[in-house]
Design a binder for these strands. Structure first.
Length: 419
RNA sequence: GGGGGAGUGUCCCGAGCGGCAAAGGGGGCGGACUGUAAAUCCGCUGGCUAUGCCUUCGCAGGUUCGAGUCCUGCCUCCCCCA
């Protein structure tokens, strides 16, 4: 990357913290950011009911834009484009979601942003449009005449997202092939509506974004800009945001603050510094101190990472509570009443609930068969005592403060409480 | 339209002479070692009221004591020819 000394706080922060993969024109973006007149958007798919950690870096871009006073963040809901499906970076066609599902997903996703951005009509306050607002109103013939004529199929065929599919003989439907045209058109439309001149996104979006810049020039928007963030993987090569239990969702109703905190707490040593820079707002000199910690001491840095990241997504109170629960559970080996809890009717409990069944009910294992296998390898514990008899039952003697602690492995704990 | 090939354990890839709950990977989970890390090593990786029973190899039939494996039809995908 070329050496560029940004004058704006926005680009300086992004550069220092490692958010930038490519930018079409550093100086141009820098100047707009410096004068506080940078309107920038990032599109978000509505393919699931929540965004996950993989989108967090994008959300942070918008947050820094607002926080540094560089301009107006525009998180764009892809209510329209999600009906089409983006082929970028995907091997296979995406299944097409129903319009009702997309709408429900959109509503659910909207909530996340209020934790990260402040919305309003002010110059640096965020707005959240949905591209369904203009895309669904398009008339096919008009669109072809006004917009379609600016696209070269020759060039579209040479784009990585398309080329990859063609080379591997993988189906690329016409509807997906059109995705980039719609995304490009979004950029132009947002320019008209909000004076938006910068589109940001993951590095896999570079082609789509540049296509939008190009369309803008042909349709008279004036100069537009692109800025992409690196595609994040963990130090050992795994994609960000996926765990055994599934994606690391940002919505509290899909992943509890406790589990979210644990996700960050379990960061690999080699990632701590990088993640502190990207996913917290701690000052850089503080981060340098934390990432320099050696051996077991780096656990302190991970706790701070978990705390800061959780506070941003779920609030400071939820983060503090997760930390306290973790302290009691892991450092004192005790029972925190704030652990995830399931309830079992008193009568059923008194009649005797099999341990295997209890672990299934707690959601720690998928079936009694799996529970049985875990018993064999010593993975199940009740109140920290290893389960050796698969026919044992839970009873009054297992209750501590009215609940029994079931554990799978060393990290996953659930309380069972008779009511 | 004609010819050829493929679809396997509901995460993925992939072997499979008529005796198959089905080889081997990857991923994942558990255990050991540690620091709730990484790396490494070991075990497990259809379901159940469980020495048994039930459901699995694209779908539906058929042959057979017995079918992932053989036969027929259908669906989907790929390649070659038109």
């Amino acid at each position: 990357m070329t050496v560029f000394a940004p004058k704006s706080d926005f680009l300086r922060v992004l550069t220092e913290r490692g958010y930038i993969h490519q930018c079409s024109d550093f100086a141009g973006v820098d100047e707009l950011a410096r004068t506080g007149s940078l309107v920038a958007y990032i599109g978000f798919d509505c393919t699931a009911a929540s965004l996950h950690v993989g989108s967090l870096i994008q959300i942070m871009l918008l947050r820094w834009l607002q926080k540094t006073g560089a301009g107006k963040p525009v998180p764009l809901m892809g209510g329209g484009t999600t009906r089409v499906g983006d082929p970028s970076g995907k091997d296979e066609s995406r299944k097409i979601l129903s319009i009702a599902d997309i709408e429900a997903n959109k509503q659910s996703i909207k909530g996340v942003f209020s934790n990260f951005l402040s919305f309003g009509e002010g110059k640096s306050e965020a707005v959240m449009p949905d591209n369904a607002e203009w895309l669904t109103a398009l008339n096919y013939i008009d669109f072809l005449r006004d917009v379609g004529r600016h696209f070269s199929v020759n060039r579209m065929l040479s784009m990585d997202s398309v080329k990859m599919r063609l080379e591997r003989d993988q189906e690329l439907s016409f509807i997906e092939f059109n995705y980039m045209c719609l995304q490009a058109y979004d950029f132009v439309e947002l320019n008209k509506r909000y004076g938006c001149v910068l589109q940001m996104g993951g590095s896999d979006q570079w082609g789509n974004i540049v296509t939008g810049i190009d369309l803008g020039r042909r349709m008279g928007t004036g100069q537009l800009y692109a800025l992409t963030s690196p595609l994040l993987t963990t130090a050992s090569g795994a994609k960000m945001g996926k765990t055994a239990a599934g994606a690391v969702w940002l919505n509290a109703d899909m992943l509890s603050a406790w589990d979210y905190w644990q996700y960050w707490r379990n960061t690999e040593d080699a990632d701590v510094g990088r993640f502190l820079k990207l996913f917290t707002e701690l000052p850089l000199d503080e981060i340098r101190r934390l990432e320099a910690l050696q051996g077991a001491e780096i656990n302190d840095a991970k706790k701070i990472l978990a705390n800061e990241a959780t506070a941003m997504a779920h609030g400071r109170a939820a983060a503090d509570q997760a930390m306290e629960t973790a302290r009691k559970t892991f450092e004192e080996g005790g029972v925190s009443t704030d652990l995830p809890t399931i309830e079992i009717p008193r009568a059923e409990f008194n009649a005797g609930v099999g341990v295997l069944t209890a672990f299934v009910r707690a959601g720690l294992v998928a079936s009694t068969g799996e529970a049985r296998r875990q018993v064999k390898s010593g993975g199940l514990r009740v109140n920290d005592a290893s389960v050796s008899d698969e026919r044992a039952t839970l009873g009054e003697r297992d209750l501590r403060d009215g609940a029994a602690k079931l554990s799978l492995g060393k990290k996953r704990h659930v309380l069972v409480r008779p009511v």
